[in-house]
Amino acid sequence: MRDISKALKSFFRLLAGSARDLMPIVLVVVFFQVVVLQQPFPNLEKTIVGLVFVLLGLALFIQGLEMGLFPLGESMADAFARKGSLSALLAFGFCLGFGTTVAEPALIAVAGEAADIAGKGGVIADSGEAKESYAFQLRMTVALSVGLALVVGVFRILKGWPLHYLIIGGYMIVVALTFFAPDEIVGIAYDSGGVTTSTITVPLVTALGVGMASTIRGRNPMTDGFGLIALASLTPIIFVLIFGMVV
């Protein structure tokens, strides 16, 4: 009985936290609808039901994060570090990056739009088949680049390289490629860095990096543990720019 009431209490605390996190959106939407656009709310009932769903969903997600995703990421990082097999760890990094990105809905949407642009711009034939293969190749390119980013990022944590050398070097490559890449691809390339990191991948990858840096002697979780997400958002820009130059 005590356990149940304790669990309920902690869930209510989570709900209150989620309500606080959602408050700004509600305020912004109400302000613009009522004050700026001066329109009534369409479907008020539906909106309120939706908000209750969002509230419950966010609280459950954060509860699950602490129970499942974080501990698993950490225990796997720990087990890999103890096992001491570099190739297994790098393979895991690649699979995690590639596997989580290739089916990412945001990426599928962006790849489809990119194919439309390429079709209209005359880069590829303006047919369904050509567009489909273009979108598929683009998705594979991005997924490969995220896999590669995690391999490089995991290797960096093992070696203790400072992250900013890699990132600043990456920025220079992006700038140089921007001059040679066709104009139509530049916007898509820059955006593709942001869309690859999903809500489930981020906690898992963060726990992996931080877990590794905490286990390996001489590494600091703050300076060495973070950075995997940063690399995974940078490499797609580079690879999509190259993709635009090659295709």
Binding site: V49, G50, L51, V52, F53, V54, L55, L56, G57, L58, A59, L60, F61, I62, Q63, G64, L65, E66, M67, G68, L69, P71, L72, T199, I200
Partner: peptide, 15 residues
């Protein structure tokens, strides 16, 4: 935890 994450994310997206 995974069940929570899955359920939570579903409700969140639907909402």
């Amino acid at each position: 935890g995974f069940v929570y994450v899955l359920t939570g994310l579903t409700l969140f997206l639907v909402g």
